[in-house]
């Protein structure tokens, strides 16, 4: 059991606040930052760190989605379809992938992240014109629309290459369960680069989705007693405050800027995983 003094409590609240903003703007859970902080700074065992990280991811997801669903940013139909393969991936990943060496998986995953980061960065340089597909949006089963304050107009879009996106969603579910990540680091680029979904809708839909896989895994950790309530509560408080601030940032931010920030985030995650895979 760790001892929390007032300074470490304040630090954790602010850290949670930062993760909440990151999560709501970019559609990720922030597990890639929470786990190392708890392990390296607070000397927490890996299982406890992953368990608390999953609680924080579930909190961000529900808080952000509670706003984004009604505003039409989170696409519930697309989300629930992709959740089927994501959840299947989580279950199969827990059963089969855990037999594979973790370092090998992290190596291949990190190699996959570099071209994704580059594609996303290059797409951000081209601008937002190619994002919207208004003419075919109505005919598309998963298409959607939302009002974008940054462009001061309604953005409609169709969803392309669903089977490929669902395959990657399965892959994301498997890896996220194994590595303790929410899965947003895979889902957002897949939705944005493969499906052609505008960055803001991709981030919001990813956020909507990751709560399910995080909650399923976290319930298992809760049953096993890996969640340290005091620590989880402090981080969750910060995360929730940050999430609500981040939602407004998401609405006002330009999609290209989010893409650039996300490509940098993917690079950081990729480098970190590559280094970890080498031990």
């Amino acid at each position: 059991m760790i001892h929390l003094n007032p300074t470490s409590m304040i630090f954790l609240v602010f850290f949670g606040f930062f993760i909440g903003i990151l999560g709501s703007v970019m559609g990720v859970g922030g597990g890639v930052f929470i786990v190392p902080l708890l392990v390296l700074v607070f000397n927490l065992p890996m299982h406890n760190a992953i368990a608390i990280s999953l609680v924080a991811i579930a909190a961000t997801s529900s808080a952000v989605a509670s706003v984004n669903v009604e505003k039409g940013l989170a696409n519930v139909r697309l989300g629930i379809y992709m959740e089927t393969t994501m959840a299947l991936g989580s279950v199969i990943g827990a059963l089969i992938l855990s037999m594979l060496p973790s370092a090998l998986l992290q190596f291949f995953f990190s190699i996959f992240l570099f071209p994704v980061a580059l594609s996303m960065y290059l797409k951000s340089r081209k601008g937002v014109k190619e994002e919207a597909v208004p003419a075919i949006a109505g005919k598309n089963l998963f298409g959607g629309s939302f009002f974008d304050p940054a462009r001061n107009s309604e953005t409609s879009y169709a969803v392309k290459k669903m089977p490929l996106a669902m395959f990657f969603s399965f892959f994301a579910g498997g890896l996220s369960g194994l590595l303790g990540l929410g899965g947003g680091i895979v889902q957002v680029p897949v939705m944005n680069l493969i499906c052609g979904i505008p960055m803001k809708a991709a981030a919001a839909t990813s956020n909507f989705m990751i709560g399910v896989s995080a909650a399923a895994s976290a319930i298992i950790f809760l049953k096993k007693g890996y969640i340290i309530p005091e620590l989880a509560v402090i981080i969750v408080m910060g995360v929730l405050a940050g999430s609500f601030v981040g939602i407004h940032a998401l609405y006002r931010a330009k999609s290209e800027k989010i893409q650039v920030a996300f490509s940098v985030l993917i690079m950081i995650v990729g480098v970190r995983m590559l280094l970890r895979s080498f031990g």
Binding site: A58, A59, S61, A65, G211, A214, L222, I227, P229, V233
Partner: peptide, 17 residues
């Protein structure tokens, strides 16, 4: 109370489904 709060937080995505 904290454990109940965490359990409810984790149950929220399930209620959503």
């Amino acid at each position: 109370l904290m454990n109940t709060g965490i359990a409810l937080l984790l149950a929220t995505p399930v209620f959503r489904v």
